[in-house]
Design a binder for these strands. Structure first.
Length: 271
DNA sequence: AAGGTCAGCAACCGCGGGTAC
DNA sequence: AGTACCCGCGGTTGCTGACCT
């Protein structure tokens, strides 16, 4: 059984909206409010389908829309949100006041994608394209250490500093981390065993973090866990540098979007 | 000036979730 | 429980203007 059409397609206009149609829609919504899109066209005297009216209002006519170019801040935010949420444009739009999901989607497809590709970043996974390629190659012949070298200089360093067994373990972890799962979940950030081991080596034990800090909700004054960022504001003479923070904080500023795992794209040039 | 190509964006389409009956 | 409907979302299309030859 098929779904009934949302409107009589034979008697509706399609394509670009005229000023008269816009005016009718605006004045109707001003006096009656949003909603009941199915019946709105007839009530407003429009030969359009309800969906078309809704789209026109939401994407173009709404008074709270911010028109014009995207700012660098918005640009950066879109990239960060996309790395977390994937193509959930409506969710992304809720974090950008005055912007619509359609506008952000178009902007992504026409500007940001290209910008990321030019910077060597895969827009779908937000990972360096070369590393991704290398990862798939390494997966095919995981037992071959020759393939491992294609991860680049950083991994070469690791190889020389660790015994082979541990390195193979790290390869498995890194290979795993390159598979981006776009499924949206609320959960603490993924950490591999090696990261935890390194922290144990660094601090003598694994640092304790409360759930609030793990979700990026930590509040410096009330929080008593060991998240460095929580206590930075308290000490005016703090000697922590940003690298100290990124290397020692186990937490993840999810809502603030200060994720250390997200690459900084602001340096890439726009076309 | 005319025609071709391309990028940007508005609008459309199909589908799925939620809900009333 | 099943059906029909409304609404919203994400992918895609197609129009338009800018630029190039």
């Amino acid at each position: 059984m098929g779904r009934s059409p949302c409107c009589e397609k034979d008697h509706t206009n399609k394509g670009a909206w005229t000023k008269e149609e816009d005016q009718k829609l605006i004045s109707y919504i001003k006096s009656h409010g949003e909603g009941c899109w199915r019946s709105l066209p007839a009530s407003a005297g429009l030969l359009r389908c309800g969906k078309s009216c809704r789209l026109r209002w939401i994407n173009y006519l709404r008074p709270d829309l911010k028109r014009g170019n995207f700012t660098l801040e918005e640009d950066d935010l879109i990239i960060k949100l996309h790395s977390l949420l994937g193509n959930k444009w409506s969710l992304i739009a809720t974090r950008l006041p005055g912007r619509t999901d359609n506008e952000i989607k178009n902007y992504w497809n026409t500007h940001v994608k290209r910008k990321l590709l030019r910077g060597g970043i895969d827009p779908a996974t937000h990972r360096p394209i070369k590393a991704r390629r290398a990862a798939s190659e390494a997966r095919e012949t995981e037992d071959s250490l020759v393939k491992v070298l294609s991860f680049g200089p950083q991994l070469e360093k690791e190889e020389s500093s660790r015994e082979e067994g541990r390195f193979k373990k790290s390869l498995t972890c890194k290979t795993k981390s390159l598979d981006l799962n776009l499924e949206l979940r609320i959960s603490p950030p993924w950490q591999d065993q090696q990261q935890r081991d390194e922290r144990k080596l660094l601090f003598g034990r694994e640092k304790y973090l409360c759930s609030a800090c793990r979700f990026g909700l930590g509040n410096g004054k009330e929080c008593s866990c060991e998240n460095v960022r929580c206590h930075i504001d308290d000490s005016s003479s703090s000697s922590y540098s940003s690298s100290d923070i990124s290397s020692s904080v186990v937490g993840f500023d999810f809502l603030g979007l200060n994720t250390s795992s997200v690459l900084d794209y602001t340096s890439f040039e726009m076309n």
